[in-house]
Design a protein around this nucleic acid. Structure first.
Lengths: 114, 114
DNA sequence: TACATATAAATAGCGGGACGATGTGTAGAT
DNA sequence: ATCTACACATCGTCCCGCTATTTATATGTA
């Protein structure tokens, strides 16, 4: 209610996933752990956000998947980036830089109160 | 379709409005112009996003408004920040810094494609 | 043995919010 | 007379992240 801080910046999840997968094939659960670790526990990807997002990205042709075995011998679905996905990642990355810089321009202005 | 780049980073609109109003009383239409100008035409606030957001913020007690006369002698609703709004702006601003830095951590990683 | 925790995937339902489309009205410029 | 800019507003849609829940296996521990 009122202020409900999200664990993510809305709209960045797809990009974060693509970027993480771009580092090398990895399964879904691993993606969420990696994002959390690299962001120093700031970003947290809920499973209810993660899996729908993965299906979305696969459905759009940015990712492909195949079942394999994880480190501890469990079945897991491994994702990897398609060429299309690479293009998309680049586009989203540039868009992020553009927009976040623009936001910073506003937020850096002097004059809080009065 | 497929890629539909937004004019904003989702979730930042409230903060941008609060920040813009914090610079001094200003009317709605003026807010959208200011954000556009300061961001060097990168950020564009659609009217269909702007006015609902203003009402939302006012309803939450972060802004107050009163009718007045704009520069060119037209009627316009001028908004100003409440103390509560100031607190909120500060909170959202800090959250933005925290999250956007975290996103940058991920995006700055080496290794795009193998 | 039983239980808890971590790993791993998935879906359903909800709610917020940004957008496009549309509507109203005035003032100034061509 | 018409077009553009100014100024406010609402409606419907769609996207997407969250909570909650389910299913299942492996490891560790009491």
């Amino acid at each position: 209610m009122a202020d409900k801080k999200s664990d993510l910046l809305q709209g960045t999840l797809d990009m974060l996933i693509l970027k993480t997968v771009a580092l090398g094939p990895i399964h879904g659960y691993g993606i969420s752990l990696r994002i959390q670790q690299i962001s120093e526990e700031v970003l947290q990807v809920q499973q209810g956000s993660l899996y729908p997002a993965l299906h979305r990205l696969e459905h759009r042709g940015w990712l492909t998947s195949q079942w394999g075995e994880s480190d501890n011998g469990r079945m897991a679905k491994f994702y990897q980036l398609t060429p299309l996905g690479e293009t998309q990642l680049k586009a989203e990355s540039e868009n992020w830089t553009r927009l976040s810089n623009a936001v910073s321009l506003i937020m850096a202005l002097e004059g809080g109160s009065k």
